[in-house]
């Protein structure tokens, strides 16, 4: 464990909690892409099946349980409890265009052609593009609630911090995982224009609105 990975995990946890509280407190999931949240639930489910097979640490296990629990709770709030506030018209990204190629790539490019490893690889690839429906929805509505931008900032920051973690581990532990790194770079790059808008607008107290 190193400081980049720990702050990365805490940033990820913060994002998940911010979103859950936003929906729960405002009793509304306006502006939130339910499709992205379903993809994240799939990402955690396929990645954390090793909860059943291997124990790494209390921290590792508890964080995985929290991530999975919050992901499904968020999906439940969006599609069941507050489904009247779900903006399905703007959440129109075709996720099959993500899941099918990612599934094919996971079968072709992986470290080990075993069930759990292919699922892990699928989860890594899927996570790198899972935010696209949410970013697409914001581009369609042309704006995002400030709390939603904080959620996205923490979510984008987490994998950027993981990139620093991988540099650290390469340098100090001479280990690195090309699949996780390449997917992590893609994932972080997808947030770049959002990061620019967040830093130039939201941090200056303005609302995030895109030139529609």
């Amino acid at each position: 464990m190193n400081v980049f990975r720990l702050t990365g995990d805490l940033s990820h946890l913060a994002a998940i909690i911010i979103l859950l509280l936003k929906i729960w407190k405002s009793r509304s999931c306006a502006g939130i892409s339910g499709k992205s949240q379903i993809l994240f639930a799939i990402v955690f489910t396929t990645r954390y099946l090793d909860l059943l097979t291997s124990f790494i640490s209390i921290y590792n296990t508890s964080m995985k349980v929290i991530y999975i629990g919050c992901a499904y709770a968020t999906v439940y709030l969006i599609y069941m409890k507050f489904r009247a506030t779900y903006d399905g018209n703007h959440d129109s990204f075709r996720v099959e265009f993500l899941v099918v190629p990612v599934g094919g790539l996971a079968v072709l490019v992986n470290h080990d052609f075993s069930f759990l490893e292919i699922l892990w690889t699928f989860s890594i690839y899927l996570e790198s593009v899972a935010i696209l429906p949410q970013l697409f929805m914001i581009s369609k509505t042309g704006e995002a609630e400030t709390i939603t931008t904080h959620y996205l900032f923490c979510l984008g920051l987490y994998r950027a911090l993981y990139l620093l973690n991988w540099i650290w581990r390469f340098y100090f532990e001479s280990f690195f995982d090309m699949i996780a790194i390449v997917a992590g770079v893609v994932q972080t790059v997808l947030y770049c224009d959002f990061f620019y808008l967040y830093i130039t607008k939201v941090l200056k107290g303005k609302k995030l609105s895109l030139p529609a």
Binding site: R5, H12, I56, N60, M63, Y162, S174, F176
Partner: peptide, 10 residues
């Protein structure tokens, strides 16, 4: 370098 055998990251 080597690859992680066990995925110890979240």
């Amino acid at each position: 370098w080597q690859r992680w055998s066990l995925h110890d990251e979240l």
